[in-house]
Write a protein that binds this DNA or RNA. Structure first.
Lengths: 203, 203
DNA sequence: CTGGCTTTATACTGAACGGTACAGAAAGCT
DNA sequence: AGCTTTCTGTACCGTTCAGTATAAAGCCAG
């Protein structure tokens, strides 16, 4: 034990930065999806070899979840900002613009990590899909609550259905994600967002 | 050669119905996606063994494309009906309702075969994704043309952007598909469609 | 019946997958 | 120094994948 009680790094020190490696892993998962990413893809992008990855992150699934946490912290921050907006319309506008920015931020447009993996393929990814759907359900509930408040505050007409409104907005966000991963240009997506916004009910 | 020139089935006759087998394969692809479906899944569902499948359909990829043809012929017929509707609003309504019906037709709701596989994972499915995106692009072009006509005919306001309108409608259809595959109920999806329709611009 | 043709069924191939055993290398502790 | 602890690199494990070689089974024409 160290006399000073300091964190003593015994044994050979790690030769890579875990945060940087996680960021690299996120990039790969983001462009290829969970199942489409192999351990070779990951270790190559992370610049480490397999046992190091297992020691640092557990396994492929845990690595993905940690990458997903990072993704939500960094790339989905606009959702938090959106919910703080004063009107329902501004909530929607902030989310739509955030989704477009997020989808077209990289070299070539690619869909939201969540949306991509919520429809993943094999039985291998069942747990991943469950995790993502749970997080999505939570976000939906928050949006519904926000739109119910908007009705009370009068910036959403009384005839609208908050559940339906949320489902439509989420559908637009999912559409942005899918069309981006299908190769839509930034202009295409901006027209989608703009038109969707022009259809938003006014109080 | 047969004297009568009739189709003479030489050799051992096939013991299964190809159309029925293809329909079974479609069911599996529809619920598991292209990459999520293994040859074991397929042959088990089709009730035949591997070499029979290869002899009858070529390989997994060709089998999928034939299943996709069948899917579009049977399950996406509503798109043709939609385009024939007299107004843009009715086009949208027919498509939205058709998508909801299609997604909730089976035992449990599952997304559109196209949407599911347009975001498929690995490099294995690159060709599949290309095929699907090409077909989707075509459908989008037809919709844009339809909405341009609607503007000329005056049942869509002059300020709307047909490209944007199409992208929004397609996003709603994709959203229906994704939310269905995430386990949304029929009621959820109907509220999505209803609310989306209530936002449709009136002439 | 015999020979030719096609579908069956079994069992296999090579490659890729996620995950790991093991030996060597690099640091701190006593 | 010598020991312990942790990380690195290689080489491997068992499993699953799409696809196929091979031979038996079934049907026709002659």
């Amino acid at each position: 034990m160290n006399k000073l009680g300091s964190i003593c790094a015994r044994g050979r020190p790690r030769e890579f930065c875990t945060e940087q490696a996680l960021a690299r892993a996120l990039e790969v998962f983001w462009s290829k999806g969970y199942e489409g990413t192999s351990l070779n893809d990951l270790t190559e992008a992370m610049g480490i070899n397999r046992p190091s990855m297992y020691a640092a992150f557990g396994n492929k699934e845990e690595l993905f979840k940690k990458a997903l946490d990072l993704y939500e912290r960094e790339k989905m921050a606009y959702i938090g900002k959106a919910l703080e907006q004063p009107t329902a319309r501004l909530v929607a506008e902030t989310m739509l613009r955030g989704a477009v920015d997020n989808a077209t931020g990289g070299e070539q447009p690619h869909g939201c990590l969540r949306v991509i993996n919520s429809v993943a393929c094999g039985a291998e990814a069942e747990s991943i899909r469950g995790e993502i759907n749970a997080r999505g359900k939570l976000a939906k509930a928050v949006l519904i609550e926000r739109f119910e408040r908007a009705k009370l505050e009068g910036d959403l007409p009384s005839h609208v259905d908050p559940h339906g409104m949320t489902a439509v907005l989420v559908a637009m966000l999912q559409g942005i994600s899918i069309q981006a991963s299908q190769g839509a240009s930034r202009e295409d997506l901006e027209r989608l967002a703009q038109t969707g916004l022009s259809m938003w009910p006014s109080a």
